[in-house]
Design a protein around this nucleic acid. Structure first.
Lengths: 198, 198, 198, 198
DNA sequence: AATGAATGAGATTTCATTCAT
DNA sequence: GATGAATGAAATCTCATTCAT
């Protein structure tokens, strides 16, 4: 057989890297970053400890890559509204996508909340998230303002808190927290309010 | 000279124990349980490492005492509604006290959320909290039912999620999250509802 | 470069493990289990403390492996008499081998006696040894019975005590306790009894 | 009430000291010297740790006092034969007393054997014991010589080993090792010898 | 004489990281 | 690219001893 091409090698590298990222995310999310050892990640990914360091230069860097790739995915989802103005259907889409990503990337969000609670660990990531959160809040504020709310800033803040609370409850016990039903509840609560339940 | 009396020893023990519990809570809450070393707790409490083990038999037991004393305090606050029926003013009182304890015991709640996200650590505490959460949810459900909501169970769940979200946002950044204003918003949202809309 | 083969790794592990076992046995036997630190074992084996835990999960498990491998060796030696009947030459062989193993595995027997004196530590090992001791005593009893002794059970017990006493004296001071001479004495005492006299 | 007299104080001191010695002996014998903590001794003696240091300046010194008082008792028992010549009845008495002290001071002998196996700990005590052992062996040798044995030195050594073996077996499992019967066996073996054989 | 809080040295153990192969 | 033996720093925990009262 002929030796592998550059592309094949890259494919292997890429898929192995993903394997490590996924293994680490699962463990970090469910046991905590500090309680997860490099050994256990390597074991879960069925590779040697040494190889892991071939892909990530430290445990912290590994965490950073996990978090960065996660936030990027999130940004990509919501990148559509670059004008900063939210229509009702875009607002609905935002809610739907938020709850969808919660379901498809539960471990990521679990880890996100755990890290967000620990300033020491989080400080490095904070900048990136803060920007995202602030811009999201601003868009929401604008949305509520256009809807005629008296205090759109507070309204946006509380909407954010509400979504966070739902997210938190979901990641803490995904089995017993029915997202479908909740999605309907949230959309109904926010979109049909002034229509009098349509 | 004669030795200290039993009372004197009890006083020493009690105050030193509290000192350790407070130091540990602060560090656990802000750095995470696993990221906090016994050394750092001892340093913060200005005692030797050895002495800590005179008061707590292990780091885990220390954590358990912190969490147990915290939950007890919470239970004591809300023990008033033993009939299980909430009047409007009691509901208001519940909201007020919840946000008050959030302010006075921020570190405790910060630690609570961090632990709740890690099944491995939390499993031991889970039983106690589950009971509390379930009974609170049941009372809320009854309250919303009496208010004439169509889906009181969902309403209670969402109220819980909302309060969790507020709590989470507050403990993550107490300085920039104005609880007073939020308290008014929450009370208004829930208690004036039937005036404006269902 | 390619990694070592499985065989190479196995070789490394086996020889390093033996090195640690030997170092530990020497120290445990001569200073006592509790008085021997992991540090001193590592130093003697010229490895780091950490590596020791790559081979044995705890100090206690290390002790167990030492004791288990020792008893296995002993069982292997005396496994020949599975029919449970001892001829004179087999009895002689038993004595010879007992004293031989005493010489070749002095530290093991030293440690054995020290542990046997401490119920707390010994309890885990007890089961294995008890079985061995009881079956040996039973074979001896049968042997003495066939020799026509009035109280073969007591005779076997006393023979056992005698051998223990010799072993104890030898391990306590191997230099000044001449096993060769003693071997002749024991064999003569037990095997020539009814030939020479009475 | 009048203050206690000097004698009363001395009595109290003496009995408390004995209490500590007994507690320590029990623990040292059954768990080992290093595995026994000062705390556990104090707890067993129902005194405070501090008070223990009022009586013994260190854990090692406490051990020394235990061993010294034990050996003294032993010397006192066998002090009768100062001429160095043993009659048959004195030899019999020696056996009887040895087994008696084994029964009444089991823990002491248990500890003695455990220590004797550990040169590091034993070296300090060794001198005293060596003298006793050597003089006893010499007397025995003389006894066997007078009895007409060809190799009285070896005979004495083997008698010593035999007694050690019995002692060892007894202290390891006092319940299941019937000293009375054994005493008869030993006395019969050694004192009736010249009737039957040799 | 008596207490037990307090210390500090040292024990066992863990684990991120390196390195020879 | 891949292995896992090896290290060393730091973590948790223990305990003989001291000391203020």
């Amino acid at each position: 057989m002929s030796p592998r091409t550059k592309e094949q090698y890259d494919d292997i590298r890429e898929s192995k890297k993903k394997l490590i990222l996924d293994s680490a995310l699962d463990l970090f999310a469910n046991q905590g970053f500090h309680a997860t050892s490099i050994s256990s990640i390597a074991k879960k990914a069925k590779i040697s400890k040494g190889l892991l360091y071939n892909y990530f230069e430290s445990k912290e860097k590994l965490l950073m890559e996990i978090m960065n790739s996660g936030i990027q995915e999130f940004i990509d989802y919501f990148d559509t509204n670059e004008d900063g103005i939210l229509s009702d259907s875009e607002f609905k889409y935002f809610i739907e996508m938020s709850l969808l990503t919660l379901k498809s990337r539960t471990n990521y969000w679990k880890l996100y909340f755990a890290l967000a609670l620990q300033p020491t660990v989080f400080s490095i990531l904070k900048k990136k998230y803060r920007k995202l959160i602030e811009s999201t809040l601003a868009i929401m504020e604008e949305y509520f303002k256009n809807k005629g709310y008296k205090n759109p800033k507070m309204q946006a803040l509380m909407f954010g808190a509400f979504m966070d609370g739902i997210s938190l409850n979901y990641v803490m016990d995904p089995e017993n927290f029915q997202l479908e039903e909740i999605k309907d509840y949230v959309i109904k609560s926010y979109l049909n309010l002034n229509d009098d339940e349509n």
